[in-house]
């Protein structure tokens, strides 16, 4: 038990990643508000980023910028951070796109609740076909 706890404390970024991931998934799947879904997605994405970035971290390492004086220093792995920058770009575009979709839906239905939208869509269709008749 103690060993497990120690492991947990040493690897706390991973633990947080898992927790964040769970929160994100839960939010996406259980909330019917579109904004909350979007937030869940972003939280989930952050979990992935943390996982990646934490993997590059080395205890006592220095930032990976070339210091001419100190060749012996242990550098933090910069690759995961660089990669996650790309990931963040992707996540930004996803968010922007999703927001524009949400706005589109809000303009149409006046709500951001997924279930309500589904219900209203069915009603709208009914009215439409009645009109046509």
């Amino acid at each position: 038990m103690k060993a497990l706890l120690e492991k947990l404390i040493i690897n706390y970024p991973y633990f947080f990643a898992v927790v964040l991931f769970a929160i994100g998934v839960l939010t996406v799947l259980t909330r019917s508000n579109l904004f909350k879904k979007l937030l869940g997605i972003n939280i989930m994405g952050s979990a992935g980023f943390i996982l990646f970035i934490a993997s590059g971290n080395i205890r006592g390492g220095v930032e990976p910028i070339l210091h001419t004086s100190d060749h012996e220093a242990v550098y933090v792995n910069p690759l995961p951070s660089a990669l996650m920058l790309t990931g963040i770009v992707v996540s930004v575009s996803v968010t922007a796109f999703a927001l524009s979709l949400i706005i589109r839906l809000y303009k149409e239905y006046g709500t951001t609740d997924a279930q309500r939208i589904a219900r209203m869509r069915n009603e709208v269709k009914k009215i439409d076909s009645n009109d046509r008749r």
């Binding site: 922007a96 927001l99 524009s100 706005i103």
Partner: peptide
């Protein structure tokens, strides 16, 4: 562009 698109929609 994103900003304008969102504003426009609103």
């Amino acid at each position: 562009t994103i900003f304008f698109t969102l504003m426009e929609d609103q």
